[in-house]
């Protein structure tokens, strides 16, 4: 019973996501706020490079941001 409810929930979520209409799609003329620099996922390239480089040399985890960045002897 519980499993069936869970399956239903998951399926609904998947259908909503896949059909891309979980909500009314945002129209082109409504994208003023999304156009703000702070809403971008890459605001400051050099900042991102530096921060990721530092964490890469002091921590073990990395990845998720992109592919094929140059390595270094720091880790």
């Amino acid at each position: 019973m519980c499993q069936s409810a869970m399956q239903r929930l998951l399926l609904t979520a998947a259908v909503l996501l896949l059909s891309g209409c979980a909500m009314q799609p945002v129209q082109p003329w409504e994208k003023g706020d999304l156009a703000k620099p702070a809403m971008s996922f890459s605001v400051d390239t050099l900042d991102d490079h530096f921060t990721q480089h530092i964490y890469n040399s002091k921590e073990n985890a990395s990845g998720g941001y992109g592919v094929g960045g140059g390595g270094c002897g720091c880790n």
Binding site: S40, F41, V43, D48, Y65
Partner: peptide, 21 residues
């Protein structure tokens, strides 16, 4: 050109990053 989200141009992709738009 249309979706032209202007602010994004300046801060476009880090070499290794995937930009939003």
């Amino acid at each position: 050109a249309a979706l032209a989200l202007p602010g994004l141009a300046a801060g476009l992709a880090a070499t290794t990053a995937i930009p939003a738009h």
